[in-house]
Design a binder for these strands. Structure first.
Lengths: 338, 338
DNA sequence: TTGAAAGCGCTAACAT
DNA sequence: ATGTTAGCGCTTTCAA
């Protein structure tokens, strides 16, 4: 059996309160008492029972992170950043995969199973703004992503519209006028696809370039294969274009592959830009221009804000919205004489 | 304050034992009693306090997973599989990133911080066989990966030697004789690089093809960039080759990029095969032949074995070794008239 | 500066 | 079939 406070107290000849004080860095302890306790601790190999501690304190030191799937590179890199941010604040991260499925997402919000955590970072994909009410939960919750806006919780997001606008403007600045889009979602207004498409249209408008709906390639999930399929359809449709905006990097990479198979040179015939700044785009052929959405900043902010909600017992702080700073990253796929 | 067993008992007019029985699906309860309790539960929105439960039962229902980094695609996909396998067994997964750093890995084994878990799935990268003693820990531990063999714990691994041999044989079967390797580790015997290299040499030997050390490209970490760098060095060295075995997919993808920049056609001039069966290789140009190391089987086995160790309090079951079944996946990068 | 003791919410042994 | 009760190991008033 593992040693307990009592064992240590007995060995050190003090009360358990004193041992507890030592463990919790309480200030007013005589140096020699502390010394004796420390020795007993290491002698017995004592380490505190965290279940007991959290039963008592009501805190577990663990936060939950719910994402669609880790095999989607964006979420893997997000999880990486969040675990690092959490570590810096003494928190552990328990990961839950929703598969991007609305029912599964709702279940996580209501289920008592995700309990061993003090709060949740939640990145929905299947839910939409109409489900915002479901975010009214009794535990600390920080929303990530772009599926729901104006909900009842803190929200950390990227500057989707502005950065998509900047991506499009980047292609325009390279003299491109017929810019195809890969990854659009039929009829979506909110959500990464909807917002980024809005940025795309704003950039066109600003440049006085007419919007041509035939340039939009639709897909459902942003998996690699869908970028390829969508691009194949665009090519088959016969519509002309001299640039492609992949609504994320994976889509853009899939599209690039199809373009190259079809004999289009990148960036000469078709310039390409993606979105997310995945590591993968650094080593593709050609390297992929993209938007760095500020992932580290998102992770940092999200963990910080969640921790604030966990510690402050005031419920009356209104929900806040945070937008990370983005950056256009020019690589080979759009490197043209500006 | 959240409702407790006591509150529910009071509301239902029964004792807490009865409520506890209902929650834990104890058999012998009168239907109407159960009914009443259920109603009280949903009325009060009761959900059990897991800290209390685990303090009492000694179980948390959470397992730890320690991997180098989720931004390495292999580990992201592994984590995905493991979370899914754990979910099927009613377990949650807490993820810890070691950065592949030996000191950090050792710390995780000794530190009392990773406590809120019942056991650990551990995939070291910095540790080596000499550190096997450190695996002698007091909590249930299942080792993953190929850094340590013959240690004191259960171990789930891939068939590195055999599958690397099969990968090499695959290239040989396509008539290739000068097979370069990307990702070798200087002097390594155990570890993914060492084992896969051994498989490579065995295949050569079996085919009567002489081993040429000039064909080995060395790298440290298996990041994308290193595959590119290593291939660049091979090209600069002037050594001739008609095929490349990337010791993992990321390396192979990086190498492919450099080959194409250098004007080599794949697979015509150079056939390429990787290792890991990452999703990414399905959409590269050309698509990447690879080894499917049986990730799902690894995840499944690892979680199952860990759970067995957690539940069985017998310490005398000797450590077991499991090897997943692999499969050669032929795609475009090695598609040649066999 | 340290000690005594209550109790966090639950499970399980024991009792009825 | 259901109730009583003793802790699990810890933090935390309250006292000394």
């Amino acid at each position: 059996m593992a040693a307990t406070l009592k064992d240590v107290a007995l060995a050190a000849g003090v009360s358990i309160k004193t041992v507890s004080n030592v463990i919790n860095d309480y200030q007013h302890i005589r140096a020699d008492t502390k010394q004796r306790v420390m020795e007993a601790i290491s002698e017995l190999g004592y380490s505190p029972n965290l279940s007991a501690r959290s039963l008592r304190s009501g805190r577990t030191g663990v936060i939950g992170l719910a994402v669609p799937e880790l095999s989607l590179s964006y979420f893997a890199e997000l999880a990486d950043s969040i675990i690092k941010a959490a570590e810096g604040r003494g928190l552990k991260v328990l990961i839950e995969q929703t598969g991007g499925d609305r029912a599964h997402e709702l279940e996580i919000l209501s289920s008592p199973r995700l309990q061993m955590t003090d709060g949740l970072l939640f990145s929905p994909l299947g839910m939409s703004n109409e489900d915002a009410d479901h975010l009214n939960v009794s535990f600390p919750l920080v929303l990530l992503g772009e599926r729901i806006f104006g909900g009842p919780t803190d929200h950390v997001t990227m500057s989707n519209v502005e950065s998509a606008q900047a991506a499009t403007a980047h292609l325009l600045s390279k003299g491109r006028r017929r810019i195809a889009v890969v990854g659009a979602h039929e009829g979506e207004v909110i959500g990464s696809a909807g917002l980024r498409l809005r940025g795309y249209r704003q950039a066109l408008e600003e440049a006085g370039v007419p919007f041509d709906p035939r340039l939009l390639g639709y897909t459902t999930l942003w998996h690699r294969s869908n970028g390829a399929t969508s691009m194949r359809q665009l090519l088959e449709s016969g519509v002309e274009f001299d640039a492609v905006f992949g609504l994320n990097d994976t889509l853009a990479l899939g599209a690039m592959r199809v373009l190259q198979e079809a004999g289009r040179r990148i960036p000469d015939d078709v310039a390409v830009i993606g979105f997310d700044d995945l590591d993968e785009g650094r080593y593709s052929l050609p390297t992929l221009s993209t938007i760095d959405p500020g992932r580290a900043e998102i992770a940092d902010t999200a963990v910080r804000v969640l921790q604030e909600r966990i510690s402050s017992r005031e419920d009356d702080v209104p929900p806040r919205e945070f937008e990370a700073r983005f950056r256009v990253v020019e690589r080979e796929s759009s490197a043209l004489p500006g």
